[in-house]
């Protein structure tokens, strides 16, 4: 089973190949006008059964950039995010139309294995969700189930925890239950767990909404660090957070469909974060970011 998945790995992009990682952004601070998309939505619609939750999204997530998705509650940010790594496959009746391209290949293509997509495009959830296992096993779980070739699991665990800025805090209690950690530590553990399978993209759905301000700052710092190696997409309700961490920001809103009365999400505006917050071109963006949306 894993072998067959292995074949499909080859058919997407060579994973550890330097091709992906070498093209890091030249330096922090420089941001090209157009993102070099590693992940791209082309006219994406997402349905739950007959309910269209999101429509017509065209969006490019730049390599080694952090992209923030903002917008009022219920406009389909989580829905879109979950369709970027096929997590929505798990929801009965959920369906995606249009194309989501990962390095040029449609992740909903008939030959693509959703399992492999999720390994390459990891996800961190709103509520920290460590497994009911030890800290060590939480990190080792991903590499084990995906059959990664690992020389030393101990080293891999240390590396992942270090990158997630958690190693110092947990190195003496790796065998303890992950539930013994604080909420902020649990969330960093979940990030470490995602890093351990070496994905290319990390999707984060409101990763700080369950955390206190100090833990939030730590996760934000961590995201800045991770940007060197990973492409990050983050959903957030906190505009200041978007401004602090994101290179680019996409603003979504929902409109009421005249025929069905459904509230469907659309992408209103996408651009550099400074641009979105200083000179939004759309009135709805400006209204939302200065609190005129209830």
């Amino acid at each position: 089973m894993i072998d067959r998945a292995g074949e499909k790995i080859e058919s997407i992009v060579p994973h550890e190949g330097p091709g992906v990682r070498i093209n890091a952004r030249p330096a922090d601070g420089f941001l090209p006008d157009e993102p070099r998309g590693i992940l791209q939505c082309e006219n994406v619609d997402v349905y739950y059964g007959s309910f269209r939750a999101v429509t017509g999204v065209d969006l490019k997530f730049g390599l080694h950039e952090i992209t923030a998705l903002i917008g009022p509650s219920g406009c389909g940010k989580s829905t879109l995010l979950r369709s970027l790594n096929r997590m929505n496959d798990l929801v009965d009746g959920a369906r995606v139309e249009g194309r989501v391209l990962f390095d040029g290949e449609d992740i909903y293509g008939s030959k693509v294995d959703a399992i492999e997509v999720r390994r390459r495009i990891g996800m961190v959830f709103q509520k920290p969700n460590p497994f009911p296992k030890s800290i060590y096993d939480n990190i080792a779980y991903g590499p084990r189930v995906t059959g990664m070739r690992v020389d030393s699991m101990d080293d891999l665990v240390e590396e992942a925890l270090t990158k997630a800025a958690l190693w110092g805090e947990v190195k003496d209690k790796l065998k303890q239950s992950a539930y013994s950690l604080s909420g902020g530590q649990q969330q960093r553990l979940c990030i470490a767990r995602t890093i351990a399978v070496k994905p290319d993209v990390i999707l984060m759905d409101e990763p700080c909404s369950a955390l206190d301000p100090i833990a939030t700052v730590r996760i934000e710092d961590l995201m800045h660090e991770l940007r060197r190696e990973y492409t990050i997409v983050i959903v957030t309700h906190n505009m200041q957070q978007a401004a602090r961490v994101a290179d680019r920001t996409a603003f979504f809103t929902a409109f009421a469909d005249e025929g069905t009365g459904d509230r469907t999400g659309v992408l209103v505006e996408f651009g550099k974060t400074t641009q979105i917050f200083e000179h939004p071109t759309d009135q709805r963006t400006e209204d939302y970011i200065s609190g005129r949306f209830g």
Partner: peptide, 12 residues
């Protein structure tokens, strides 16, 4: 959340 966490890591 536990299931999603596992699946999001590429588990079947």
């Amino acid at each position: 959340e536990i299931r999603e966490g596992s699946l999001a890591l590429g588990a079947t």
